[in-house]
Design a protein around this nucleic acid. Sequence first.
DNA 1: TAGATTGTTAATCGATTAACAATC
DNA 2: TAGATTGTTAATCGATTAACAATC
Lengths: 213, 213
Amino acid sequence: MAKNGTISSSVIKRLPRYYRFLGELMKNGTERISSRELSQLMKLTASQIRQDLNCFGGFGQQGYGYHVRQLHEEIGKILGVDKKYKTIVIGAGNLGRAIATHINFDTRGCELIGIFDRKEELKGLQVGKLTVTGTDELERFCRRHKPVVAVLCIPKSDTQEIADKLVSLGLRSFWNFSHYDLSIDHENIVVENVHLGDSLLTLTYGTKTVEEQ
Amino acid sequence: MAKNGTISSSVIKRLPRYYRFLGELMKNGTERISSRELSQLMKLTASQIRQDLNCFGGFGQQGYGYHVRQLHEEIGKILGVDKKYKTIVIGAGNLGRAIATHINFDTRGCELIGIFDRKEELKGLQVGKLTVTGTDELERFCRRHKPVVAVLCIPKSDTQEIADKLVSLGLRSFWNFSHYDLSIDHENIVVENVHLGDSLLTLTYGTKTVEEQ
DNA sequence: TAGATTGTTAATCGATTAACAATC
DNA sequence: TAGATTGTTAATCGATTAACAATC
């Protein structure tokens, strides 16, 4: 529940998924949905859906259910899809370029405004609408444009150092793809670690477990 | 606990992280570590570490702690890092190519043996050590090489259809990067959904929350 | 033997599910 | 009004933490 202040992170982590499913329903022209119907679609319990949504106040209507478009919008607002957080990608290797071109930043509250790499040979390379800039320009760029979100696609050995530097340049949120558990002790800094290697290992475990049956 | 059969998925999802940290410790030449020391390093409780490791039997030794190399090896065995599951990537766009070149499959129990795309213009393209093959060759390829793991880097509209086809061709594990919640009703099929968009949205929520303080 | 630290049981905490009164 | 479905409280379940006896 927690009408007091913070919402539990288990709930938060489910919100993007709700948002996705509601988006799909909207596309299909569905106007209303009950927690039971939605629960079948999303493979959750109806109880959980009602519990989750009520963390933020009564979005539903007794006897009717939830208005899809309205609920979609409300959850979007909670998540911050309408924000325009200036975002830079650090590292223009395969992964950095893929993230920069593949992820829709602007529908997720972020505005991609730069991509940086240390390597001379990558400078000037076109990545989507951006041009790779040298890391030596980072400081000047940050003072001028004041980005707040950094996507880290760099080797693990560089991650902590670069992250600390970025914090000193005013960056406050880190989406970290390096094989390193970034943690920053400053207050008001947010880190989201993505460990693709861990995810693959989990799958390998599952494959092995199924095979052994 | 569960010496009976299945380990809870909360425990499983922590194993790759243990494995990573133990790998680092090994590199640094650390021979032994106590649950308390490891807990400080990983920002967990010592209790949880002992609880987790004991799901698989006593890896430690009273009064001494855990032998780093041995524990690393044991967890690796549990996860299946020594397996050689034949793996194919479906979709050779930005993301598919990044995954194929950036992820170390072989240290995670997988052997990357092919990358496929539907688009004519991508056929023949070199991606790391592999060459992009047309989707029309998929059936023949699978009958011949019998891959078991598929990495899906395709648009969400195609995902369910292609996954079903791959199941019929004997694939059993899916690492799914499409913006679609893949679920397969066959028995003994494992799916690991990676939703990078959801991860970014979670970060945006965090950014917004910190900002509002 | 004394000290350290595990393995394991018991206590606590939080998250999920069930139930039902409130209400559209 | 009757039916449907929420919002919300209570019950259950599972996961985390604390405690301590076992043992190296």
